[in-house]
Nucleic acid binder design. Structure first.
Lengths: 165, 165
DNA sequence: CTGCCTGCAAAGATTTTGCACGCTC
DNA sequence: GAGCGTGCAAAATCTTTGCAGGCAG
């Protein structure tokens, strides 16, 4: 087992590969994107995260696996992923882009205090209905919808006396 | 009448003052904001516009009235207005802030091609209902909602053959 | 007269681009 | 071998801040 102790971080990759190696590589291939270790890692990180990461966050995380990776690679990769429909990009209002591997339209809740972004899973209806309803009442040809709720997350709400009212 | 021809731009101000001079000044006073000619002009521009202007747009427009005004003044003014609740600020996803003198929550439609932002007036229900519905299905204490539809405006939809499909 | 507002300028924060080398196909 | 992907670095774009002088209250 001593080869493991020399390259501990390889263990993580191997475990993840065991789960769904084919899925990620096939996904990239389907979209006509070249398969590189960096791209696999970036997609895995985004697919596994529920935190709606920023490019900077992805960069910091993927550096644990590829210490020599550059921000540019991360940036161009998520850009390529978004153009291929593998990611969704949005902006909560702080002028920072967030990425989401869940590309179906779905609502988000954003904390006004700490800025974290969560999904709003229990929202009554699908947002696809919204798009068609809105299309009928607008001269625009509507394609997408972005529904952001702003408030205070449990942590910030509990710790901030101003909010308790 | 020769004093008018020397300072033509004053005419505009006088006409606008005739309409609702008291309203703007009272509004600023109510919010504890100092009344200056620059601030009056900035608020009037924003209140009169339906185009959801950016800070840069306001700056360019107000320069027609006060040629020596600085971007900083515009920036700090809209910031003060937003903090006082006189304006709403939002981001359509292009990392540029837009301002709206209509501070009630209301949906927007954004053109994916040219970036223009319009109100979606005919939307069925008030967004206040949405906030309370969402509050019930989230651990967040929800305060605001931002509903953005993306599509193609009539001009871009008509002129772009890719969209006609 | 005190303090906020204005104007000039610079600093910050993110996003975006250029280019040479290396790896995927 | 051809072309896309990666890595290093710099440029661009907007937003935000610092500070001295001026005007509103």
């Amino acid at each position: 087992m001593n080869f493991l102790s020399d390259n501990t971080y390889y263990i993580v990759i191997i475990i993840e590969y065991g789960d769904n190696l084919m899925d990620v590589r096939d996904l990239l291939k389907q979209k006509g994107l070249r398969i590189t270790p960096q791209r696999e890692a970036i997609y895995r990180l985004l697919a596994a995260s529920k935190a709606h990461p920023t490019a900077e966050w992805v960069y910091q995380e993927v550096k644990n696996i590829f210490p020599s990776i550059s921000f540019n690679t991360v940036y161009k990769t998520v850009q390529a992923f978004e153009e291929s429909g593998l990611l969704q990009r949005f902006n909560t209002g702080a002028n920072i882009y967030h990425y989401d591997a869940n590309v179906r339209p779905h609502p988000h809740v954003i904390c006004l205090s700490c800025g974290r972004v969560d999904d709003l899973d229990e929202f009554p209806d699908s947002l696809e209905d919204f798009i068609s309803k809105a299309s009928m009442s607008s001269p625009y040809l509507i394609k997408l919808v972005n529904l952001h709720f702003y408030g205070y997350c449990p942590q910030c709400g509990d710790s901030n006396p101003k909010i308790k009212s």
